[in-house]
Write a protein that binds this DNA or RNA. Structure first.
Length: 271
DNA sequence: CAGCGCCCCTGCCCGC
DNA sequence: TGCGGGCAGGGGCGCT
């Protein structure tokens, strides 16, 4: 479900409700997520004030005085603020209870998500230490992507989806950005021209920024931190449109499988 | 090291 | 209607 815009939407949606509130209780109904939820999570945070909610890649970072709680939504997770009286449902695995009608609730049917705790300096955490730049920050530019891609033989789509290269570009937006930039997803990263990299960086930034503005892409059941669906889905030009006409040239869009992921492109507009 | 495929898991959709 | 197979937005990890 969530790509970077969905995680950012969640971050913005929950922050006003939970920041500066004190954790009253932690309820773990299902500890078996991507990694086990730490057994001592409650004792780490109960009684502590949540100082801030940020995002690094697709990891949500909840900052406390003594450390950070990392939350990843995996493929099917969502994190919402609910009233305490709202009974937990199926797949509601973890509650962070702030009292006063305010519970942060993780729901994740596939359980690819994670809830972790680290008291070491945040950026030293192994899951964050080797991440590439944020796609919407200035550090991510054509120079950077061009230099890093030289001599790389893997497909450009897999390259931009590698979180060590740049974080937060998931399958949907990789498909969309490559289409907008006129680059064939299967092309070896090292053969993409400098000019094409300029377009690609620009399109990645644009597609992510637009999706964030609109509250993310709702596929199936995504809802942001406030429970509202996103509206970006209606603007997808290639993802899920295989066989349908390219909006540019009207030729049917082709679908191939790249690294076990659905890859859709126009054989005429993308070279 | 780079690159590729395999999983973790549930739900849903499709074809038989 | 029931069931098996394939696929789904992520991404760490192990193998070659």
């Amino acid at each position: 479900m969530p790509e970077l815009p969905e995680v950012e939407t969640t971050c913005r949606g929950i922050a006003p409700h939970v920041v500066n509130k004190i954790v009253q209780a932690v309820v773990v109904r299902q500890p078996q997520l991507r990694w086990p939820v730490p057994a001592n999570l409650a004792e780490q945070v109960v009684g502590q004030k949540l100082l801030g909610v940020t995002r690094r890649g697709k990891y949500l970072v909840l900052r406390f005085a003594t450390g950070h709680m990392l939350v990843h939504l995996g493929m099917s997770g969502n994190l919402r603020v609910v009233a305490r009286r709202e009974d937990p449902g199926y797949h509601d695995h973890v509650d962070i209870d702030f009292g006063a009608q305010c519970v942060l609730r993780l729901n994740d049917p596939r359980r690819f998500g994670a809830v972790l705790w680290t008291s070491a300096p945040l950026l030293e955490h192994e899951l964050l230490a080797h991440l590439g730049p944020e796609p919407l920050e200035a550090l991510f530019d054509a120079d950077y992507l061009y230099q890093r891609s030289r001599k790389r033989k893997l497909a450009i789509k897999a390259f931009i989806m590698d979180s060590k290269v740049v974080v937060g570009v998931g399958n949907i937006y990789a498909n969309e950005a490559l289409h907008a930039a006129g680059i064939r997803p299967t092309r070896a990263a090292g053969t993409v021209s400098r000019a094409a990299m300029e377009r690609l960086v620009s399109e990645i930034k644009q597609v992510l920024a637009r999706a964030i503005e609109q509250g993310g892409t709702t596929l199936k059941d995504f809802v942001g931190g406030d429970g509202k669906p996103g509206y970006f889905q209606q603007q997808l030009l290639v993802y899920g449109r295989q066989g349908q006409p390219c909006r540019g040239c009207k030729k049917p869009l082709k679908e191939v499988r790249l690294g076990q992921r659905s890859t859709v492109y126009c054989t005429s507009c993308q070279r």
